[in-house]
Design a protein around this nucleic acid. Structure first.
Length: 489
RNA sequence: GGUCGGUUGGCCGAGUGGCUAGGCAUCGGUCUGCAAAACCGGGUACGGCGGUUCGAAUCCGCCACCGACCUCCA
């Protein structure tokens, strides 16, 4: 272990030293997407955040089981609406598809986007539909323990009862009594005993497509059950880390705690870790605001709010430049800044590879690595770690200019620093190289001819080559000794 | 209304009771046939009003504003 990692635990509201239950093993469960539409910007934040945590834990030497679910039973679109249609069913009806076709389509979209963002695949990616039986079993267990009741073929969790025995709201800081005082009673029929009770099993209306048989009714599992079931099934009754977006704290994670505590006497989770939300031009991203951007639109620049495309690595770097518990505001200006910053970082790494060692060092690069680790250990403070990397960038460039010197040993340790932080932990990789060697060869030929033209002072020829390549999205970069090129579009 | 979080320089975004965050932009310079690229360097900051303190942007109080959650949501 390098040193102690501190993580902010939502339930204690403090940074706590991370100590796994059974080292060297670590169990981490993260709430994944409901697959009823294209993967969007909001999906990227937790994916990148917990990918970072996953990578860091492994780097520290832990053996991590990373479980991230796919919710493929659509949560109810509108609980009050008695039609009880869920998101996936609705989408299936609208697009005239099987629900599982909808699920497959958007799951593929999610996976593709995640791969582009260079997030490592989880160890297990369980799906709600694959755990219907276990969910029924948990519902049954909660009934037998007196924490749940059946009405008209549906099963509800009795929040009042639970609150009288334990305490409902410990994660989100809510008090049931206050909630009662501050919310109007919902109008109309409700088969629930208490207004805060939530469904464990829901009877399907006749036209509801996704349904499974059960002792209570043909229906489908409730909102929060799948995560309780799948996390403990694969990670045990008590596991180390449960992650997800902050918007899931209430009611989703609160209900998970209630279900598990009611069924097994204690919460299964030791550290609750939540990432903050993404905003766009200062506004929450929501369909109703018209600022809803899918990851594919971002990567291709096809959304009307985007002035250009932003590469997956730019998105990733942009997210890492902010702390995961801060809201992160997307704008063209901010993304462009991130993209240029990333380019600078990666360019310096190429410079580093060709640096000439000196007998001694005049620049101090020791300490940078420790500062990076310190930052990571302080609740994954990636922006501070990145600032250290830019310090290294400045030194690399100064050495390259002959204004500072680095010994061979120091150069090696800077290389190691970049390898560990830029690549292994931050998961950043250099942009696409040329698809194949032939193109590289052709380019080299063109650039050689341009150099010769320049030597003969035939500027019209050399400029023409440069301009035509530029139109093709290839930027020619003249250097003191020869020239370099980069695919920029 | 309730709960929680935030307000940092042109933009994004860290952080600490006294010591330059960093990136982008801008300005100056190096380089260059020109341009771009690349590199170096400089400046501008901590919402308002009180308080604690030798000293606060950092702690406390009040006010203003913004956001998240309270319904599905990453």
């Amino acid at each position: 272990m390098k040193s102690a990692l501190y993580l902010y635990n939502t339930i204690s509201r403090k940074k706590e030293m991370f100590e796994p239950l059974a080292p060297p093993f670590v169990g981490m469960y993260v709430c994944g997407p409901t697959v009823y539409s294209e993967a969007h910007l909001g999906h990227a934040r937790p994916a990148v955040t917990f990918d970072l945590l996953y990578r860091y834990l492994m780097h520290l030497g832990y053996q991590v089981r990373y479980v991230r679910n796919i919710t493929d039973v659509g949560h109810l679109e509108n609980e009050v609406d008695d039609s009880g249609e869920d998101k996936i069913s609705r989408k299936a009806r609208q697009e005239n598809l099987e629900p599982m076709e909808v699920v497959q389509k958007y799951m593929n979209s999610y996976h593709t986007a995640m791969e582009k963002l260079n997030t490592l695949p989880p160890s297990i990616e369980p799906r709600a539909t694959g755990h219907i039986i276990e969910q029924q079993q948990l519902a049954e267990r909660l009934i037998s323990k007196g924490y749940a009741y059946e009405v008209n073929g549906s099963v509800y969790f009795d929040v009042e009862k639970y609150d009288s025995m334990h305490s409902y709201g410990i994660l989100s800081g809510r008090v049931l009594e206050d909630m009662r005082a501050n919310s109007r009673a919902l109008e109309g029929q409700d088969e629930k005993r208490g207004q805060f009770d939530f469904a464990l099993w829901k009877k399907a209306s006749p036209d509801h497509i996704m349904r499974w048989p059960s002792k209570w009714s043909d229906g489908f599992p409730g909102w929060h059950l799948e995560c309780s079931v799948m996390s403990t099934k694969y990670l045990g009754d008590t596991f180390d880390i449960h992650g997800g977006g902050m918007d899931l704290i209430f009611p989703h994670h609160e209900c998970e705690i209630a279900q598990s505590t009611a069924s097994q006497g204690h919460s299964p989770v030791r550290y609750w870790v939540h990432n903050n939300m993404v905003t766009i031009n200062g506004q929450k991203m929501a369909r109703s605001f018209g600022n809803f951007i899918t990851l594919e639109e971002l990567f291709t620049g096809s959304h009307k709010m985007l002035v250009q495309a932003y590469s997956p690595m730019t998105i990733r770097f942009f997210m890492l430049q902010a702390h995961y518990r801060s809201t992160l505001d997307f704008s063209n200006e901010a993304l462009l800044a991130a993209s240029l910053g990333l380019q600078k970082l990666l360019t310096a790494e190429r410079t580093l590879a060709s640096l000439k060692p000196s007998d001694e060092s005049t620049a101090d690069i020791r300490g940078l690595s420790k500062k990076c680790y310190d930052a990571m250990n302080d609740d994954l403070n990636t922006p501070v770690a990145i600032a250290q990397l830019f310090d290294a960038v400045r030194i690399i460039n100064l050495v390259n200019d002959g204004k500072e010197k680095l010994s061979a040993a120091d150069i090696t340790s800077v290389k190691e620093l970049f390898k560990v932080f830029v690549h292994d932990l931050f998961g950043l990789k250099a942009g696409e190289s040329v698809g194949n060697d032939k193109l590289a060869g052709v380019l080299q030929l063109l650039l050689d001819m341009r150099q010769e033209a320049k030597a003969r002072q035939e500027w019209s020829v050399s400029d023409r080559i440069r301009d035509r390549l530029s139109e093709l999205g290839i930027t020619v970069k003249d250097r003191k000794d020869g020239c370099d090129w980069e695919i920029t579009a």
